[in-house]
Amino acid sequence: MHFLSTLLENYISDNSQDEPDILKELTRETHLKVIQPRMLTGHFQGRVLSLLSKIVRPKNILEIGTYTGYSAICLAEGLQKGGTLHTIDVNAELFDIQRKYFDKSGYGTHIKQHIGNALNIIPQLDTTFDLVFIDAEKKEYLNYLDVVLPKTKTGTILLSDNVLWSGKVIEALDPKDKTTKILLEYNNTLKVHPKLETVLLPVRDGLTLSRVK
């Protein structure tokens, strides 16, 4: 499902903050060398993440799902001086391209890469996070929420990506489609969770903004 016309998407991008050159370079290399480049956060959503991070001014950020590092760089733009961003991905083959662009961006010393299963890594992090971005395996979203919440505090902002799932969340559910089923449950959980205040934003493929009470 296409939510906005290409003309409108281009207009939105053209009237938002320009994409930093380092991210244009990362986008180009990702398209040339990495499979599924559509997984990139992209210009418009990247600027949304950057601005939200600058509003929050987090000391500690957690990102679940690094891919080639585009969203991590966007989020790092809002870090407090001396702040840290922990980013987790299961694909060790992407480590080097991530590190290359983290260092070129100027945020390299503030970004800690973790390779492995986020559900195993997060409980081991002795950190309380001010900002969390979930953008990894959709079937694990409910489990990510369970391990993330103990690492938050009142005022922590939780961002969840791809919650519209190309419009499948409003279509008749295929009984075999476990991913959409879990996302439907996840979206409802965020809405009714007693510890969260939530609004679902129609940004790209859906970006939910939740605040820990």
Rank of each mutant, 00 (worst) to 15 (best):
E9W: 04
D130Q: 12
S50G: 14
E9C: 06
Q124H: 12
K33M: 07
N91G: 04
G155E: 01
L26G: 13
T30L: 10
D205M: 07
K104Y: 14
A172E: 02
D14R: 01
T68Q: 04
G106C: 10
Q36A: 14
S50I: 04
H193T: 12
I73W: 03
T87A: 10
R57H: 05
K176C: 10
N60M: 11
K59I: 07
D103S: 07
L7Q: 03
R211Q: 04
R211M: 05
P58K: 11
L125H: 04
G82T: 04
G155N: 02
G82V: 07
L94S: 05
L52P: 12
D96K: 15
L196S: 02
Y70Q: 07
T30P: 15
L8N: 06
Y144N: 08
N188H: 12
L145R: 01
G82K: 09
T127D: 06
T198W: 05
G82S: 08
L209N: 08
H114L: 06
I115D: 06
A136R: 10
I111E: 06
R204L: 03
V192C: 01
L85G: 12
R38E: 06
Y70R: 14
A92T: 14
E29I: 14
F102D: 10
H114Q: 05
D177K: 00
K139D: 03
Y11D: 04
N117Q: 07
E171T: 13
V132H: 10
L145K: 02
Q45Y: 09
E137V: 00
I22K: 00
Q45M: 13
D103A: 07
L62S: 02
L94W: 13
D174V: 13
K168C: 09
V163A: 02
L85C: 14
R211L: 05
L8K: 02
L201M: 13
H2A: 02
D135I: 10
T154Q: 13
S16P: 14
A118D: 14
L62W: 08
G83A: 04
V34N: 01
D96T: 10
D177L: 01
K191E: 09
L145T: 02
P194H: 09
V199T: 13
T127N: 14
L173D: 05
D205F: 07
L79N: 15
T156C: 05
K176V: 09
V147D: 09
N120D: 14
L164V: 03
H2M: 05
H110F: 05
T208K: 01
I12E: 03
N15D: 11
T84W: 11
E63V: 09
Y101W: 03
Y11W: 06
I35Y: 05
V212M: 03
A136S: 12
H110T: 15
A92P: 13
Y144Q: 01
R28K: 15
T41C: 09
S105I: 07
